[in-house]
Design a protein around this nucleic acid. Sequence first.
DNA 1: CAAAAAAGAGAGCAGTGCTCTTGCTTCAGA
DNA 2: TCTGAAGCAAGAGCACTGCTCTCTTTTTTG
Lengths: 235, 235
Amino acid sequence: MSTPHSARARARIEVTAAIKDEARRQLASEGATKLSLRAVARELGMVSSALYRYFPSRDDLLTALIIDAYDSLGEAAEAAAEAVADATPTRRWIAVCEAVRAWSLAHPHEYALIYGSPVPGYTAPQSTVPPASRVGLLLIGIVRDAIKGPGVTFPPLAPELRPEAERLAAEIAPDLPPEVAAALVAAWAQLFGLVGFELFGQFNRVVEDREAFFRHAAGQLALGVGISDRPSARR
Amino acid sequence: MSTPHSARARARIEVTAAIKDEARRQLASEGATKLSLRAVARELGMVSSALYRYFPSRDDLLTALIIDAYDSLGEAAEAAAEAVADATPTRRWIAVCEAVRAWSLAHPHEYALIYGSPVPGYTAPQSTVPPASRVGLLLIGIVRDAIKGPGVTFPPLAPELRPEAERLAAEIAPDLPPEVAAALVAAWAQLFGLVGFELFGQFNRVVEDREAFFRHAAGQLALGVGISDRPSARR
DNA sequence: CAAAAAAGAGAGCAGTGCTCTTGCTTCAGA
DNA sequence: TCTGAAGCAAGAGCACTGCTCTCTTTTTTG
């Protein structure tokens, strides 16, 4: 937070940022598998061994990029939500979904890094958890507002799932009804299924007008969690 | 199809299979990034350059593994469908979804290879298209049977999406109503969103009873495409 | 001001994908 | 059945990778 006291400390964060920037450039243009520490160092005019003073391994660099990607996506989604803060819940939901899709199409390799195969290790480091939940929290907020009004119909919930749904609701959003919380988590995962399929070519020769298809699918997702524009407080 | 005439041709397909088997083993245990041509050759007692007589590059080997993975998944899904061929459409739909999930949990690295980040190039080779559509075709068949009965309610369709839905239906299943075809493609993508999120750790600290959660979500997907067990011809 | 900590430079190790050349084996046509 | 051609294995080698270790220089700190 505070400005660094020593010149060395300031240089350190500058060099760290430069490394991440160059690495992000290579990631965006060639993908995670082609990202090379040596190439990053070369481009920055330093020798490769010097880079290990800043990131102890390639995986650590990738982890840093993963966190940044989560933050970048979260920021884009939050900006989109704020831009339509006064609209109906359905519109706000769809706006966030479309922001996720737009960011993913613009940053395919970064998307692959965070929602495709997890490259480093098998379980993500704990430090990636908070940034990873920004989009989820955003969706929770929208649903929270949406179900405030009267006459909302909660999504159905299989009796076997009720205990899990209650536990889940208590975990992520205690003020949400269990059936809504469970449906929301499912919709959250399904949203990224739609985006991932488009991004990774699964829709080739199947879906043509992807913009319209996605908007419609996002609207259906909203219905699935109980969002509807019936008698909203606003507008 | 026919048995090979020359001894050399027979040896070739044997060695090719051995290479793929060993590569699949390494893929399953270490992941795609760690799969090494040299290690495969070493394990098979041959020198690495000899391997290039069978696969011209590492990406070609990976492509072969991708096709095999699609086929393996498709086979598992089809077997599950046949095992409940006499059940209601909803049960058959859920059985296929659960087979997809089970296969993916059992073969995480192969799943990552085909539905995670596409490693070779950016667009999948044409040869991967037919095996990739086996699960989709299976779902189409189930829905086709399901909507035969009377009293089925078609999913809603936004007017802007109607032309695309009609084109899409003509492409993948001309006998299906456009609204069903569009909803089916969306459900297809969403299914893999659910599976991918569980597999890649996105459900950590969120969903606990994943079995029950998935079954419920799969049932909701079935409802979304218009499948219901009301007055089915069977049972 | 001196000791300690941090940073950079370079060599080096083990590994990778891939190419090229050299022999040997198997096949197919006369 | 013999021979030229094609298929295949082996080895050396190139350019690259992640990473470690040592050595020197710079900066910070007690």
